[in-house]
């Protein structure tokens, strides 16, 4: 498989061409530094993202609470996680970093509050 990856480590934004399968990388061209090489490797083999969204609450004054994944989730699971998070209703009070969903979609990642509801 061939993939072009735009590096996001710094504002230069190198275009890195990677060829391989999963962790087994055959060739990599276009990176400008060591960190870029590492980024392109990870992004090619297992792209992950921090997921941030909101969860509904039972509070009338604060209908939504902002949340994040406490670790990055695999990119391909983002929409599944969103579907799971949509079903959640947080009961007030909620404190910052309270866990609202444990191990979302078997990713080993928790969804935690980034704001508070009284």
């Amino acid at each position: 498989m061939k993939k072009e990856i735009i590096c996001t480590v710094c504002p230069i934004g190198c275009h890195i061409a990677v060829e391989g399968e999963g962790d087994n990388i055959i060739s990599m061209e276009g990176y400008g530094c060591k960190r870029g090489e590492q980024y392109a490797h990870a992004e090619f083999a297992h792209p992950v993202r921090i997921l941030t969204t909101t969860v509904k609450t039972d509070s009338e004054k604060t209908p939504l609470i902002p949340v994040r994944s406490d670790k990055p989730v695999p990119k391909e699971k983002i929409m599944d996680c969103m579907a799971e998070i949509r079903k959640c209703l947080a009961k007030a009070p909620v404190g910052v970093y309270d866990i609202l969903i444990e191990d979302v979609c078997d990713t080993g990642v928790n969804i935690v509050a980034t704001g508070a509801v009284k």
């Binding site: 921090i50 941030t52 969204t53 909101t54 902002p66 949340v67 994040r68 910052v96 980034t114 704001g115 508070a116």
Partner: peptide, 25 residues
């Protein structure tokens, strides 16, 4: 920042990546 629920804040000031509500908090 209360509505900037995405990450990317605080990398220079706090040396860690925070969401808007966390940074403001």
């Amino acid at each position: 920042l209360q509505q900037c629920i995405h990450p990317g804040f605080g990398l220079t000031y706090f040396k860690e990546e925070l969401t808007g509500p966390e940074y403001a908090g």
